[in-house]
């Protein structure tokens, strides 16, 4: 069991009578890049929400770097990209990043915001309000927001949704770079090709259970597609 990575032991989550997660066991080493697949309603987003501290598990334990995910100290080490952007429409791209930089205790939030805007190629829209951005630009700005504290752990919930081809390429390169830098990443995706190209591990969640978990090395898109279809019962 990794004390530096991410550990889930028997994680269950109930919403009323519905058991969204039925005892998930997961052990992710520091520096791993896990691509998590599964059909809609499998519990992928619920698992990510538990790992980043937005939800509390009904039963079981979820730890990041050996700490309970609800501890304030661990939040600085975690970056999240969700379905929603967490961005204020009435603030500019720069102001949004500067605000989050200040919340995360960055020493020079303005410089950090400018650097991140350059990294996601939005510097020319620095002073435009986030509310005027396209879906793809919002997604890129969300990525910058998630990286504002230079987190060690990054949770991505379908980050490629709404990205055009250049933005998706830019984002894929960025993910590869983050992995090279030693970040631990969990990414939910429906795109098997992208998942295989960036990850070191592949997992499938179905009906609230982890039904597949293996290394990516040597896996081809068509092989994994067959495994995926079999595991979700198609």
């Amino acid at each position: 069991m990794s004390e530096n990575g991410i550990v889930c032991k028997g994680v269950q989550k109930k919403f009323g009578d519905i058991l969204a997660l039925k005892g998930v066991d997961l052990n992710i080493e520091k520096g791993d890049f896990l691509a998590l697949f599964g059909p809609n309603g499998a519990g992928k987003t619920t698992l990510i929400k538990i790992l980043c501290g937005l939800l509390r598990p009904t039963a079981g334990v979820a730890k990041v770097a050996g700490h309970d995910v609800h501890e304030t100290g661990i939040r600085k080490k975690v970056g999240v990209i969700s379905h929603k952007s967490f961005l204020y429409d009435d603030l500019t791209a720069f102001e949004n990043l500067k605000f989050y930089g200040e919340l995360y205790g960055e020493l020079n939030p303005s410089k950090k915001a400018d650097n991140l805007l350059k990294q996601v190629e939005l510097f020319d829209r620095r002073d435009d309000r986030a509310g005027t951005f396209s879906r793809g630009m919002i997604q890129r700005l969300s990525i910058a927001r998630a990286l504002v504290a230079d987190p060690e752990f990054i949770f991505l919930d379908e980050p490629f949704t709404g990205l055009d081809v250049p933005s998706a390429t830019l984002f894929r390169d960025l993910l590869k770079q983050l992995h090279v830098e030693g970040k631990t990443v969990i990414m939910i995706s429906h795109d098997i090709g992208i998942g295989i190209s960036v990850s070191t591990r592949l997992a499938i969640l179905n009906g609230g259970k982890l039904v597949y978990d293996a290394k990516t090395a040597g896996m081809t898109t068509s092989d994994f597609k067959s495994i995926y279809m079999k595991e979700i019962g198609l």
Binding site: C52, G53, L54, T72, G73, R75, K76, V78, V80, S82, K84, S85, F86, L87, Y88, D89, D90, Y100, L103, Y104, G105, R145, A149
Partner: peptide, 16 residues
Amino acid sequence: VERENDCINGLTLSPV
């Protein structure tokens, strides 16, 4: 304002 785009989650996830 905080509910739009789930900004409230952005606040609660931050280490403040």
